[in-house]
Design a protein around this nucleic acid. Structure first.
Lengths: 218, 218
DNA sequence: TCGGCTATTAAGAATTTTTTCATGGCGATC
DNA sequence: GATCGCCATGAAAAAATTCTTAATAGCCGA
């Protein structure tokens, strides 16, 4: 008997994963949720063999959530579901303690493999992400630019790239506007850009070169 | 016997929809694909009762694809899968001839409803999108979106898209900052976006598809 | 252990932007 | 030729952001 937690803001994705799990395992129990608060409630009151989490759920401070989770339950196996755009942040999450990273672009067979591997308490990364690790090892290359950003800064950046303004982000992360303002300034400074448009173009550059991506065009 | 086409870059989403359809209909055939080229090949050689398409498949020019599809097969029922961020472009797709729009955030029941409604050749919009439909009623084609900007506003927009701020533009155009500020507000309002990032994404949509023959950058 | 470094936080002041409102100009229309 | 709608313009008030400056905490190498 295995027990799973699935968190993704898209119902259709939860449905897809549910069926994948049902095909793979005979005797399972599945909890599904669509936001960080529910994830936290579920994890506090249940014991899971594996939690499969989207890291970009609206209104959710994922890093904070993961920190809470690992403080409460250090051995929980967590498999992160991600889109290619978010892979640049992979290292931060790995450091926090997640077991695996799987890209939503992956086919079902690969997702199955990721689930089984992490369930067996082994680390799993999407194929395309070994590039990231390698680049990171050389400590050079454009990706290390993103590594220069602290977890909090990365978090703020994702919100900035969605068009949120400083006050909205402050609200979301329960921080002072001037705090977020400071983060924003440091992000721009570290990445060598001067405004949001340039930040947007900069990150798009990576999406286009396929540097942080598994498959952009198939 | 119903025949469906599912196109989404995420395998897990295709899996989810496949199971939804299998639950809903007894006798069905499903083709699935993950990019625009395959969609086009499939539609040229098959006849579908409904095509469920993601409009944001990497490497795919969705507007061009839809134009080709409707030229070849004007009566094909198409249900667009979208994320909330993309909804601002909904009216363009509606004008092209798609039957429905469903947000990926929607729960399974609503997705079912969207599928059934469009299959019955009725228009379906996600609950939040009726605002957009009203906007469409006051209408004019996608090309005129930029035509609705006054010359001065277009000029300001090109500078905004280069990352210049309001005062820099004011300097450049020898105008008061508050004047430029007003122009900026009107640009955002007219194009139905709420911030610079969305403006950038919006114009990129047209650059990408070539639909925006209006000069965007001087 | 100490001192330097960085991350995170934010109060307060200075600045910029947004919002709101009002004005004059210009062309179309009736 | 009066009125209407739209454009371009900004003054003024309101809101948001940036620019300091600095406190606290954690990490790392000497």
């Amino acid at each position: 008997m295995k027990k799973f937690l699935i968190a993704d803001s898209h119902s259709i994705v939860r449905t897809g994963i549910t069926y994948l799990l049902k095909e793979e395992f005979l005797n399972i129990e599945i909890d599904a949720c669509s936001n960080g608060n529910t994830v936290w409630e579920k994890i506090k009151t249940n014991s899971y063999d594996l939690a499969i989490l989207d890291i970009n759920m609206p209104g959710t401070d994922s890093i904070n959530l993961l920190q809470n989770i690992f403080a409460f339950c250090p051995d929980l196996k967590i498999l992160i579901l991600t889109t290619s755009r978010e892979e640049i942040y992979a290292r931060i999450y790995l450091q926090l303690g997640v077991k695996g990273f799987i890209n939503k672009d992956a086919d079902d067979a690969e997702i199955r493999k990721a689930i089984i591997t992490t369930l067996n308490n082994k680390k799993y990364l999407s194929p395309g992400m070994h590039v990231i690790q390698r680049l990171e090892a050389t400590k050079r290359g454009p990706l290390s630019l993103f590594n220069r950003l602290s977890p909090r800064e990365l978090e703020v950046m994702t919100h900035l790239l969605e068009g949120k303004n400083v006050s909205q982000i402050a609200n979301l992360l329960c921080a002072h506007t001037s705090t977020i303002g400071t983060h924003k300034a440091k992000i721009l400074q570290k990445l060598g850009v001067t405004n949001i448009i340039e930040l947007k173009e900069f990150t798009q550059l990576f999406n286009h070169t396929g540097l942080g991506t598994t498959k952009l065009v198939s």
